[in-house]
Nucleic acid binder design. Structure first.
Lengths: 159, 159
DNA sequence: ACATCATTGTACAACGATGAACAAAAAGCA
DNA sequence: TGCTTTTTGTTCATCGTTGTACAATGATGT
């Protein structure tokens, strides 16, 4: 009931808000994870963006470039730049669809599948190592929060 | 004790691991948040990387480029590319240190301070809006998990 | 059938981020 | 003092990402 409270009850700065601090931590962790993954994938001569592509081709064989770009939250032009590289390296195959001559359907070659499995091994190991300090239920809480964020941001995006 | 269990007890795929799925959600949320923030900052003619710089100059007046780069987890060369732009726009000031003639000490101009406050308002609003679905205690859990990840990844980085 | 609009992939210029090589200044050490 | 090593910032070539403009194909409506 004196001066102390007056200064304590004001939250002028963003970094005093718990949600703000929380998000900054998320962003930095993400950045660090990307950098570390980049280093650990170096000897396979691929980078996180390539791995994202390969994993999705592994899961969804025959997907189109458009669908792939939407899953990865990147532009179509991005795929047009990266996919020919992977194709030249013999990791993926692109063949036109008979019914819709606009689309190119994507799939992994045997070499691509092998490389993807090696890379996923590395990524999984890195994630497990980084998250061993957090109990599974905390990971579930994190996942739920993140899914809510994704839903919120996607909703106002496609209006 | 028959065939069913044999296939069920194997977790071949990364996306079956809860920690893996959890991290994928983190990465996608981060990506989306960045894109949304980029759009909402557009009318101020700055992008998330610039805002990161400005906020740190707001908090830590007189910081050097090296210290700034370390806080942002980017290379020194990155700062050498971005800071001259902000200086030409009259948002920051760079002046040499008398005692150590190598370093440049950074500070915001009045115009830079004003712009930073506007931009922080936007970012804070976006974060609050995206996280309103998550109770504060969940945010704290998220923050703790992320700080652990950061600590883990930084530890093996600076060895 | 025809015109119009939407969708899919590409080409290109602009920009941010990186790592390596470099110059200048400081720090450590003989 | 003089020599080496470390630190700080810059420059440059390279690469991923974006947005825009474009061509080809498909879908829609009259």
């Amino acid at each position: 009931m004196n001066k102390k409270q007056v200064t304590a009850e004001h939250h002028h700065f963003p970094w005093d808000h718990p949600r703000f601090r929380s998000w900054i931590a998320v962003a930095r962790a993400c950045q660090l994870m990307q950098q570390t993954l980049t280093r650990e994938l170096a000897h396979l001569d691929i980078k996180p963006p390539h791995l994202d592509i390969l994993i999705n081709l592994y899961r969804f064989d025959g997907i189109t470039q458009q669908e792939l770009a939407r899953k990865l939250l990147v532009g179509r032009s991005n795929m047009s730049m990266l996919l020919p590289q992977l194709e030249k390296r013999g990791l993926i195959k692109r063949r036109g669809d008979a019914r819709d001559k606009r689309v190119l359907r994507l799939s992994l070659t045997p070499a691509g599948r092998t490389l993807t499995e090696e890379a996923m091994e590395i990524q999984t190991a890195l994630i497990e190592k980084s998250l061993t300090g957090s109990p599974i239920e905390d990971c579930m809480t994190v996942a739920q929060s993140m899914e809510r964020i994704i839903a919120t941001l996607l909703k106002e995006d496609g209006d």
